[in-house]
Simulated scan of single mutants.
Amino acid sequence: MNAIDRTPADLLRSALAADPSRPLVTFYDDATGERVELSVATFANWVAKTANYLQGDLAAAPGDRLALLLPAHWQTAVWLLACSSVGVVAEVGGNPAGADLVVSGPDTLEEARACSGERVALALRPLGGRFPQAPAGFADYAVEVPSQGDRFAPFAPVDPQAPALVVGGEELTGEQVVARASADARERALSSGSRSLSALPYDTWEGLSAGLLAPLAADGSVVLCRNLDRLDATGLAQRVESERVTHTTA
């Protein structure tokens, strides 16, 4: 993190400038056996493509509200940083009926249909796979995003003091998100090279911070685990050792 970082997207740009090759997000789904590791550069590329899709094809603008109906997942992390890049307010678990657009996983499609704006669906299949057939009324993220540009530039500057994130019923500006994430990183003694394991959901600040934002602010990385309860104590210990985990929040 640099002193000039004022939004989550700024944090990612600083991480990319410092060391693009280091791991940033390692994702496990212990229900499917999936493991995906994204370097800073790879993660940033996904964010750029998603931000281009959000700003271009979906015509989202700063201040628009996006209901994010996704679990803790590497693709959810991508969407959060893409929203920050464009200036769109990411409402984690938000009400689709009151949102300008909605991004949904496979388990919340009926709820997401309440959104009268653009609707995007994610299959959340291993390796970012697409739906066998896109749900009616939704664009399939895995179909739409790969062809997007690898570099992103916002049409309008993002205001760090404008709303950026709603989680747990609390609205935060970009500056507040960065300040809280940085404070959490200090409290948890995270630093460059720290590797944090988190199995918390993303529907609270604690989960978002532990599973993405605090490690990002600290120039560390995160091992994000879904369905970790499928592992026994021995399996968890082996993961901590193999992934060189330094901090755990489960």
Rank of each mutant, 00 (worst) to 15 (best):
E241S: 09
T204G: 09
R13W: 05
K49D: 12
E206N: 09
G207K: 03
P135W: 08
R188M: 15
G193V: 09
F152S: 00
A233L: 09
D10R: 03
G56I: 09
T7M: 13
R119P: 07
P126W: 15
L127E: 02
G98K: 09
D29R: 00
F155I: 06
P20Q: 07
A233W: 07
Q75I: 14
V78F: 08
L236T: 06
L24P: 00
V166M: 10
L228V: 12
A112Q: 02
L165C: 07
S116P: 02
L231A: 06
Q176I: 14
L81H: 08
A250W: 13
A139T: 15
P96N: 07
G211S: 12
T108R: 03
A67Q: 06
P215L: 14
T108A: 15
C225E: 08
F131M: 02
V158Y: 02
A48L: 13
G105T: 11
G98E: 13
W74S: 01
M1H: 09
E91T: 06
R6G: 13
R226K: 14
S191D: 12
G211W: 11
G211L: 13
T173P: 08
E111F: 12
A59V: 07
L70S: 03
W74L: 05
V103I: 14
A136T: 08
D29A: 10
P96I: 15
D29N: 03
D19S: 14
P20V: 13
E243H: 04
R244C: 13
T26R: 13
V25Y: 13
E171C: 13
S192R: 11
A77S: 06
G87S: 05
V177S: 03
G220F: 11
P106G: 05
G93Q: 04
D30R: 11
D57N: 09
F155T: 12
R65S: 10
A214P: 00
G93E: 11
S194M: 08
A41V: 04
V245S: 02
V177G: 00
N95G: 04
A9I: 10
E241M: 09
S196F: 14
A217E: 06
Y53K: 00
L208T: 08
V36A: 04
S85N: 00
V102P: 02
A123R: 14
L58V: 06
D203I: 11
L197V: 06
L80Q: 04
E110K: 04
V25K: 03
V177I: 08
L122H: 03
A77C: 14
E110G: 07
S84N: 02
S194F: 11
Y28I: 13
A97F: 14
R244G: 12
V240N: 07
A44E: 05
A153P: 00
S196T: 15
R186W: 12
D57C: 10
P23S: 10
R113L: 14
E170C: 11
S242M: 07
L81Y: 08
S194C: 05
D57K: 10
N95R: 01
A82S: 04
S39L: 11
V89Q: 01
G63I: 12
Q133P: 00
T204Y: 11
F152I: 03
G149R: 03
R244W: 13
L165K: 08
L16V: 09
L190S: 04
D184W: 12
Q176T: 06
F131G: 00
E171I: 15
E144I: 13
P135M: 07
